[in-house]
Design a protein around this nucleic acid. Structure first.
Lengths: 404, 404
DNA sequence: CCGGCTTACTTCACTCACTTTATTAAGCCG
DNA sequence: CGGCTTAATAAAGTGAGTGAAGTAAGCCGG
């Protein structure tokens, strides 16, 4: 990425975004969609062609004159590595420009190991991934890191993530960049998932939407007019700590009636444990939240009434919080991502859709679509990878413009 | 407003904003604050001087070299008329560039009159206001209209505001523009109040914040990085219809446990009526919500225990919804506006501040300021006026940039 | 099969909002 | 008063865009 790439960044990124998402497309159409003139598009496209990120792939039908040249993205021309550090696993993916996962691995989570150890392990894992897949190092534009909790993007540190206790204030971003030799972006996993969704075209047509990421906790990422919203301190989208009962349970976070206490995997598993003790539910519980939650989900999908009741309750609480969020932000699309939706996702989609259609204030004006992430279990890791692609190739959409 | 004004609009608006809010300020300081060069500021300032909206008002101290020229806004150079159509009253204000209210009137609310009648009445009222104050028509840049409920800004219509039943789909904006001969902006009252707060410098230093407007209902306006957030259909900020109890009371809006059912003026007055019936509270109730709510508020401020309990309960519920909002949007400032805060505002500020300090997720990183609007009862009308000032003079900050 | 028509794309001169560099203006201080 | 410092303006340059004219490539009708 030379100086040339950074200049004209906004139009170039916007144009590339369109070529990516609107499939094979001609210069004329690009001009119409971007609002730029054909002349400008002509030069922008020339640069993109020179960069090798797009190519001309034949001509279209003639409509009476010279036929349009079809432009398509060159997926393999740029690669990014995405890493999601979950509670139980660390997931690695290699994604190309088209959002295709070129390779992936999953290893055990960080546990109690020191951040220095983990950084070493991670760069080794990345190194073997690159070698194993025989990737062209020149095409790797960087790596992204997604973390389940608040990040300090300015300083490149994690702070106060319960599952990453020893990481507070460790300069993880810089450490990873040094040890891998790659530029390193990082963000909250829900935010990463939201960007990933955008990048993969699943949000096509919607510039404003939210992702809900349920892993061990519940987070969300908010995209406004194509720009990820970071708030004043990147502590954004904590839908898991919105109150669904002002006089309800006290959450360890200090708030009262937090959604996570009712709808989160831990809450569901705890209720399931009670039900098992009562004999109303028959599922072998292991004590590992993610495993047990998946077991409840699959029992529910198979028709176990008690299990289904638990999932439904969780979905209803989540839906309630989402109605509030939609009423506050006037959203039209919500994308569900994260491992917790892996087994019973469709039930969640169904119930949330229904409740939103019944209860949002603007329901007479527009509905709210609820979709499962197209990225499934890898949403956060893939999102992390797209963080880099987005930053390197369409900077305009990633960083919010700060006023004065 | 010739072509000249529209060009360079963004820098010019930004600069004017700074001159307005940062008081007398020199070109050098403007350059530092905007990030533009001194040369650019020089030309922008020249244009603003030519427009007559600012003037040079003496020189500052020398710091070893040529002393800086102090630039100040020329408040009287531009005026805007703001109208708030509340349930009980229609409020008119004339505001100048400095946010000073040059004149105001308040008349009875629209009641059941047809929108055409109201438009006639309103343009008459505006006309007499202009004549009564002997305003220079050339300096009036337009009028703004604030309405308690969702608006369709694209088509300039109101839709589904309970207190304005007959107004749905009536082209109120166009009608007013024609009958008054003024350009007409309009928006939700909470949003207008939020912009008003920004314009008046009360949010100084905070580009991202929310206003809570409590009149008959509870709404809010959200400003992100200096840009008002409108959502996909301007149905934004409906904090009154966020759920504070997922298994609570059914709201007429169709949602369950809406904040308004617990904390809104109507809810408080109804509880007060019960208390009066029980003999635990002794306040004469009139049946008019706004009057009765004010009476409860002033009783509470005077130390009546039962009244205070009612206000505290309302504040606690509102605070609960605000904790959720802060956790979702990572805000640093919340401004309370609207007639309902007129009597017991300080109690609300106190309770909400305390609860936010105890319960928000990011409380270790940054606190949340809670302030009463500096505009008191006129916040929405004044906000409506600033809608116009903002649009004519700092277009960049008002309209959100749409992506693609 | 050739010229005219249509449509796609490129070239080129210009604009506009800015920047960088240099110059002038205006104060202070020894 | 001349040297120093700082403020403001002037002049030339830059980069992303525009608009208008030119070129390329297909179709179509005689």
């Amino acid at each position: 990425m030379t100086e040339k790439t950074r200049r004209r960044a906004s139009s170039k990124g916007k144009t590339l975004d369109l070529i990516r998402s609107a499939g094979p497309i001609s210069r004329v159409e690009l001009a119409e969609l971007t609002g730029l003139t054909q002349a400008t598009i002509s030069t922008v496209v020339r640069e993109l062609l020179a960069d090798g990120v797009i190519s001309e792939t034949g001509r279209g039908e003639s409509t009476g004159g010279k036929p349009r040249m079809r432009l398509e993205i060159n997926p393999a021309s740029r690669l990014a590595i995405g890493v999601h550090v979950g509670q139980d696993y660390i997931t690695y993916v290699v994604a190309d420009l088209g959002g295709t996962v070129v390779g992936r691995t999953r290893v055990d989570g960080p546990g109690d190991a020191s951040p220095i150890t983990i950084v070493g392990r991670m760069s080794d894992d990345i190194e073997s991934l690159i070698i194993g897949l025989d990737l062209d190092r020149a095409s790797i534009v960087g790596m992204g890191l997604a973390i389940p909790g608040p990040v300090d993007r300015e300083n490149g540190t994690v702070r106060g993530v319960p599952s990453l206790a020893g990481w507070s204030d460790f300069p993880i971003r810089k450490a990873l960049a040094t040890s891998t030799g790659l530029q390193c972006e990082f963000d909250n996993d829900a935010t990463a998932a939201a960007i990933g969704e955008y990048w993969l075209g699943a949000t096509e047509g919607y510039g404003t939407y939210a992702s809900v990421y349920m892993g061990s906790g519940i987070g969300s990422g908010i995209v406004i007019d194509g720009t990820i919203y970071h708030g004043v301190s990147s502590n954004v989208g904590e839908i898991g700590h919105t109150s669904v009962d002002a006089r309800g349970l006290v959450c360890p976070c200090g708030n009262i009636g937090c959604l996570e206490m009712y709808a989160g995997p831990r809450a569901v598993v705890e209720k399931a444990a009670d039900a098992v003790a009562n004999g109303t539910l028959d599922i072998p519980l292991t004590g590992r939240i993610s495993v047990d939650f998946a077991a409840i989900g699959s029992a529910a999908e198979k028709g176990d009434g008690a299990a289904r009741a638990l999932i439904e309750e969780s979905a209803e609480y989540l839906a309630s919080a989402l109605v509030s969020m939609v009423n506050l932000l006037d959203l039209q699309l919500i994308v569900l991502a994260g491992s917790a939706f892996a087994t019973a996702g469709s039930t969640y989609v169904q119930i949330i859709s229904r409740i939103l259609a019944e209860r949002t204030l603007a329901r007479g004006i527009h509905g709210v679509e609820v979709r499962m992430s197209v990225n499934g279990n890898d949403a956060a890791a893939l999102g992390a990878a797209t963080l880099v692609l987005q930053d390197r190739l369409s900077p305009r959409s990633l960083r919010s413009v700060t006023f004065a």
